[in-house]
Design a protein around this nucleic acid. Structure first.
Length: 555
RNA sequence: GGGCGAUUAGCUCAGUGGAUAGAGCACUGGCCUCCGAAGCCAGGUGUCCCGGGUUCAAAUCCCGGAUCGCCCUCCA
């Protein structure tokens, strides 16, 4: 629809130029057609005449007049075209054209909203990637949902998507984890220990120690730390990782691939890469440390890749990891990070450029912190003391649907207050129910209609021209706009657009429902309205599916 | 001190260079004999932080300032 009108404008420009009506022979700009906010301005509006004013050296309203005179509406889709305000061209589409679009929604069903926007392109989305040193907490939950939904959106937009979790299982924190469990193990066995403040304090550490004791007995008790630390570390990391996977699954988040940092070091992977970069002078030695010349690629200072101690930094592995991503042939790579990591962006982009890839192909979504509230009051959390609300606890308390939906109600890079009491409430304060209720209502209407012997109508039995109530047209226009939402969210990587759209659609539906009877004595009208309701249900279901939220038939 | 981001209704926040800047919550009053009241309807608010600039047009782009947050580890 939109494209048709844009094409008409394009043709009009050509005709005007050819016929010498406007000096636009070398106009190369793109034509912008926007959805109007107010129906008084029609369905679509173009600012073309105003844009052309400086090129054509004439008044916008006059240019608009000339353009409109040359419009070729061969299919007769337009009711009228008006010039308004400073020179907007407002397009009014015929009602019957809108109604006919419902047929597409019905025909496509689950596939409605999918596009070929990203067809043929492979994208990797990497998210969560929390260290396997403790259970996921509320802070990880937001990133998990955003990553999962972004992947769903990209898939709907036609991209071939791979969801990946990077397991950061190398480095100091892993030894700290193993030692924490080992110390608790000794403690449980009755030894006196001194538990360092910078070790992991949570109860789950002692639980792991107890598990090991139960499985293996006291065989480790009198062994040297260096002999047995490896076992404790691996046991703890594997067990915690299993827990993380289970918690994510209960949250509806799954991955296609888990990528271990340890694997990067195999076959001299990280060190070999640094050697090769050294020969290109991207990496240089200074004393005992090895530096990456990120300043040559726009970073504010160079970064250490091998410490004085001889250990590689996290960044060293990340260079190899991002190189590996591009070697796997992805056209674009999406990383989802906590917003406190924003200072890390120039470094990684520099690394990508240094190894010969396009830094623009890396898209980073920054996710702001979540403030957890209960009844409006902040919930105290301290990672150091091991006191945090886990993802599992949140899912158990408020449910998967409410939790996911609430995390998607703000822009990713905007602070989010998550109120446990509010998310649990089954009331108008809780937006997820508002949308789900709309879907359940539609299902209820369909059930009731079936009881009355009104079968779900086939397209050929429906006279869509009977849909003439203003709210009906508004509903039709809103659901025909859905593919734009998918594409736009995919382009901008902004999943929150879905919750705003769903809320709008549900509001129009609820309002319509209260004013109009779908199933009535008038059989033809009932069929047409039921058909519209089913199309709305399809859109609600498709959109909720992308968010990973249930579309219940009853509530 | 440097960097990044934010600042929009009482609160929490949307907003693609366009026309009269929106939503939810909160507050007040109304609506079930009638397809589900987890719903609807009616009520009203803005120095879009401030000051310049670009533009036919700026909440939106640019520059300067204020305030707040985050980052400025050979942590991850």
């Amino acid at each position: 629809m939109k494209k048709q009108i844009i094409d008409m404008l394009q043709e009009s420009i050509l005709l005007c130029a050819e016929r010498g009506l406007l000096p636009l022979a070398d106009f190369r700009g793109t034509i912008d057609l926007e959805n109007t906010k107010d129906s008084a301005f029609g369905d679509y509006a173009s600012n073309l005449a105003m844009v052309l004013a400086s090129v054509a050296k004439d008044k916008p309203r006059k240019i608009a007049e000339t353009l409109i005179a040359q419009l070729q509406d061969r299919d007769g889709i337009l009711e009228k075209v008006e010039i308004a305000g400073p020179g907007f061209i407002n397009f009014f589409v015929r009602d019957r054209i809108w109604a006919a679009l419902l047929a597409d929604i019905h025909r496509l069903g689950e596939g409605y909203g999918q596009s070929d926007f990203g067809t043929g392109k492979r994208v990797q989305v990497e998210f969560v990637s929390a260290n396997p040193t403790g259970p996921l907490h509320i802070g990880h939950a937001r990133g998990a949902v955003i990553g999962d939904v972004v992947a769903n959106i990209l898939t709907a937009a036609g991209f071939d998507v791979l969801k990946e979790y990077y397991i950061n299982d190398v480095g100091k924190q892993m030894n700290t984890l193993g030692r924490s469990v080992l110390l608790r193990y000794r403690e449980i066995c009755g030894r006196t220990i001194e538990f360092p403040a910078d070790h992991y304090q949570g109860d789950y550490i002692a639980d792991l120690a107890r598990e090991i004791l139960q499985k293996e007995g006291e065989v480790f008790l009198d062994k040297e730390e260096k002999e047995i630390l490896g076992y404790f570390t691996k046991y703890a990391a594997d067990s915690i990782m299993d827990g993380i996977k289970a918690d994510l699954a209960s949250f509806g988040v799954t991955f296609d691939n888990y990528f271990s940092e340890r694997d990067l070091y195999k076959d001299n992977g990280v060190l070999g890469l640094l050697d090769r970069l050294k020969s290109k002078d991207v990496v240089y030695q200074e004393g005992d440390t090895l530096w990456f010349r990120t300043t040559a690629f726009g970073d504010e200072k160079d970064r250490v890749v091998i410490r004085e101690t001889g250990e590689p930094t996290y960044f060293a592995a990340d260079i190899a990891y991002h190189k590996n991503k591009f070697e796997r042939g992805f056209d674009a790579v999406v990383d989802i990070w906590g917003a406190d990591h924003h200072g890390y962006i120039p470094r990684v982009k520099a690394a990508i450029a240094a190894v010969g890839n396009d830094p623009e192909a890396l898209k980073i979504i920054l996710v702001q912190l979540v403030s957890l509230l209960r009844g409006g009051k902040p919930v105290a959390m301290s990672t150091r003391a091991g006191e945090f609300v886990t993802l599992r606890e949140v899912v158990d308390e408020v449910g998967k649907d409410a939790a996911r939906y609430n995390f998607l109600m703000r822009r990713s890079d905007s602070h989010l207050d998550f109120d446990l009491e509010l998310a649990k409430k089954q009331s108008n304060e809780n937006p997820v129910y508002y949308v789900q209720y709309a879907h359940a209502r539609i299902c209820s209407i369909a059930r009731m209609a079936a009881e009355k012997g009104l079968k779900l109508p086939m397209l050929e039995e429906v006279d869509l021209s009977l849909l003439t109530v203003p709210e009906e047209l508004q509903l039709i226009k809103t659901i025909t706009r859905y593919p734009e939402i998918v594409e736009q969210s995919a382009r901008l990587l902004e999943p929150h657009r879905f919750t705003f759209y769903l809320n709008d659609l549900a509001a129009i539906f609820h309002s319509y429902y209260n004013k109009n009877k779908v199933v009535s004595e008038e059989l033809d009208l009932s069929r047409a309205r039921l058909f519209l309701m089913l199309c709305i249900g399809t859109v609600l279901r498709n959109a909720l599916h992308i968010l990973g939220v249930q579309a219940p038939e009853k509530m």
